[in-house]
Structure formats: C-alpha cells, structure tokens
Nucleic acid binder design. Structure first.
Lengths: 157, 157
DNA sequence: CCTATATGATTCACATGTCAACTACTTAGG
DNA sequence: CCTAAGTAGTTGACATGTGAATCATATAGG
C-alpha cells in the first residue's frame, strides 16, 4: 500500500486527475460567470460583495471586515468597491468610529440587483455544475472538498 | 428518490457543495500558481503554452492550433504569446503554408525554462492538491471530473 | 478573374488580480 | 504632549482575461 505521501512527485495518474479536474472546474466556473454576466450584469465578485452586504447588520460593513470575510486582498476589495460604487450598487461613507476607515453601504439599487440575480445565479449553478453528478458523486465531492479545505487550512464553512 | 433534475434551483446542500468545492479549488490553484511563479518565474499560462510547444511536432505550432488545444480565446493566445515572446521564451515566424498565420516556435531558452520548471510544478501539485486526499477520494474525484467533463461537453482527455 | 465571405491573428477598451508603495489616522510608551 | 509603530484604505504598475472591431489573406462561386 503506497499512500504516496513520501513521494515528492505525483504519479501520472494523479497528475491526470488534477488536470482533468482543474480544467473542468475552470470551464464550469467560466460558464457560470458568463451566464451571470449576461443575465444579471453582475460578475462573481460583484455578487459576493452583494451577498456579504445584504446579510450584514444594517446592510453595511467596514471595508476591512469585507476583506476578511471574503478572504480577499485589501487592494482587491478597494478596486472592486470602486467599480461597484461607480455603478451605484453601493456607497462609501466615512466611518463614525474610526476616521481612517470607511463604511460600505448597500444602496437600494444594489439591493435590487442582488435580488434580481439570485435565481438566475442559482439556476446556473444547478444546471452547469450540480446536474453533472449523481447524488453519490455529489456526496463524494462534498467529502473531497472538506478534505482539501482541511489540507489547505481553510475553515470548514 | 429525488434525482433533482427537474428542479430548477439547487438545494442548500447542493449549493454548499458547489461553494465549498469551488473555493477550495480556487485556493489550491492560486497557491500552486504563486509557488510556480516564485520557484520558476512562470505563470500557469506560460507553463501550459510551454507544455504544448514542447510536445508539438518540431517544437512549434500554429497560433490557432494552440488556441484550439488550450481551449483559449484567440485574443488570449495573442496576448500570452506577445508577453512570452518579449521574454524570449518563444518566437513567431510567418507561416509557410498560410500567409495569414504565424508559426509559434519554442526557443532554446523556452525549452530550458520548461525543463527547469517541471519538477517544482509537479511537486507543488502533489503537495498542495494530491496529498489532501486518500486514494479512494482521489478515485472519486477522477470519476466526478469525468462526469463534469461529459456534462460540459469537454473531451475526456 | 473577381467579389463575397470566411479565417488567422492582432488590437483596443475594459474588468479583474497581485504586490509594493503611499497617505492618513490611531495608539502605545515615554 | 510627542514620537514610533501599527492599522485602514487607496493608488500605481503590471499580468491576465473577455469581447468587439479591425486587418490581411484565402477561397468559394459566378
């Protein structure tokens, strides 16, 4: 029994699993993304920010909270918020507690865009990803995802 | 027995599988990528082009062949090749058969970069991705990847 | 042979991501 | 109170991705 942890390199079979898997997930992601963009005009980044704000206390969050929550670089958050603010999906106000920071607030338009995009987004995930699998395969995937998350030191969700 | 294909939307469990899985794969990918960049100075895009050229007849390919092989947009190929040419990893020559096209040729420097990056790249895939799983999980993943590829109309590899 | 259309490839404008440098405010220590 | 260090956030330079427009060449039909 070769658990394989002592080898430094993957077998060709292991490598093939990585490639086949990684490529397929990439394609699935890009199809979901382009469908989202077509149907709701929102990118995945937009959507994630909107989810976070919608679920937040007072429909608002500090930019740094957002960065921590999404596990994004601060500069990435900055850029994303800048683009979204330009489109009117959110607003940045000076933070009352800390003059360095700003409070990111969901606008009515942002809330509307979020509501309108949820159904199409979920439908795309179902059709493009979920429907590819049998219930057994889906259960295995869940298991594998948990193992990978643990291995990478990610929270279990 | 709810195979679920008739529902339009995923259950919350299905959605959680997608998210947990997608996020984990994203993180794995970005860690492999940044390690590659650190250790070999090559991006994943660079690496894929180098593999294709290395394995090609005469260490060269038509740009359109490359696009088809990698399943990339043509403009993406153009940009990638432009950057790589500037760094001396490849060369573009006018195609002898078709004056519209160009032939992308691996340079000696490109071949050297490819050889030097293979081991670190494989080691990163093994440590970051493969080692997360038991052999059973890996087999399941292979199966799931095949199902997804079929569902998305991708070649089996 | 000539024109309409198709094909190969690049270019442009823009969205998105990373990393490092910078600005501005806060806070701990003396 | 004042300075040094830390923290919040933005900015700039660049790599990468997409889609539409453009340019040059090829090729099918008349």
């Amino acid at each position: 029994m070769d658990a394989g942890k002592h080898r430094k390199l993957p077998t060709s079979g292991e490598l093939a699993v990585w490639r086949a898997h990684h490529e397929a997930v990439e394609i699935a992601r890009s199809r979901i993304e382009s469908r989202m963009r077509r149907e709701s005009g929102l990118s995945d980044g937009d959507y994630r920010v909107l989810i976070a704000l919608s679920e937040a206390e007072g429909k608002s969050m500090r930019s740094s909270q957002l960065a921590a929550h999404l596990e994004w670089e601060r500069s990435r958050v900055s850029g994303q918020l800048g683009r979204m603010e330009k489109r009117g999906l959110l607003r940045r106000e000076p933070s009352p507690e800390d003059a360095r920071g700003s409070l990111v607030v969901l606008t009515e338009e942002g809330a509307r865009a979020y509501r309108g995009s949820t159904i199409p987004h979920l439908a795309a995930i179902k059709e493009i990803f979920i429907d590819a699998f049998t219930p057994e395969q889906l259960a295995s995937l869940e298991d594998a995802a948990a193992a990978l998350r643990t291995h990478l030191g990610m929270p279990a969700r």
